[in-house]
């Protein structure tokens, strides 16, 4: 009954970025299932966050969690999770990032602040990440180096220009992330 266990692995990749930056679009470009939009129920953790009205509220806040799946073979899956980048949702990152292979930060050059926060988050937790700049139609093109400077990214962090609607482009982002994680994953250096 246990024969498949060592071969069964679900890999988590996080997709970070501000509202409307293209997280769901990116997930849907490669997911074999419709990007799922589930709601995570918050219990008392949300009480402090939403306390604007004075109305008693404990268990009724929800937050959307988008995710998609790529089956590489029977028993080997990649799950992509996109969650909101705003501060108030970071407790969700805390849970999702445990054991994650890495993260993709989608940067919108008009709103680099949200990317800043995500970059900080992953750097502090030593989670391998890549930054991608979504160059959708009509968006100004930015050189990867300009984005690197603007976000004060270390030299080893890959910056990829992309079109997150395009499957091949998203595949390239993921390939870049997996290669980067292979070289920089803390777990590998910890386990010779």
């Amino acid at each position: 009954m246990d024969y498949a266990r060592s071969e069964t692995l679900a890999i988590k990749i996080l997709v970070a970025g501000g509202f409307g930056v293209g997280k769901t679009t990116m997930v849907s470009a490669v997911s074999e299932i419709q990007p799922l939009h589930t709601e995570e129920l918050l219990s008392d953790r949300s009480a402090a966050v939403d306390d604007t009205t004075g109305v008693e509220q404990k268990t009724t806040t929800t937050v959307a969690l988008d995710f998609g799946r790529i089956t590489l073979r029977e028993g080997l899956w990649i799950y992509l999770f996109g969650t909101p980048g705003q501060d108030r949702f970071w407790f969700m990152w805390d849970e999702l990032s445990i054991g994650a292979l890495g993260a993709v930060v989608i940067a919108d050059t008009r709103r680099l602040g949200e990317a800043f926060a995500a970059v900080d988050y992953f750097e502090q937790r030593k989670i391998p990440f890549v930054v991608t700049v979504n160059c959708f139609d009509g968006a100004r093109r930015h050189s990867p180096e300009a984005v690197r400077r603007a976000l004060a990214l270390p030299a080893h962090v890959p910056v990829v220009l992309s079109d997150v609607r395009d499957r091949e482009s998203v595949k390239e982002i993921l390939l870049t992330l997996v290669r980067h994680a292979r070289e920089h994953a803390p777990s590998l250096t910890a386990m010779p």
């Binding site: 266990r5 069964t8 692995l9 679900a10 890999i11 988590k12 490669v30 790529i70 590489l72 073979r73 080997l76 990649i78 445990i98 054991g99 994650a100 292979l101 499957r167 595949k171 993921l174 390939l175 997996v178 290669r179 994680a181 292979r182 994953a185 777990s187 590998l188 386990m191």
Partner: peptide
């Protein structure tokens, strides 16, 4: 239920290669 949070720690060179090949083949 598999023990939690194993994915990053469970990665090894063979699985990395399998993931890269799988992604390329999509």
């Amino acid at each position: 239920i598999d023990r939690p949070a194993v994915s990053a720690a469970a990665m090894n060179e063979r699985i990395y290669q399998e993931v890269l090949n799988g992604l390329r083949a999509l």
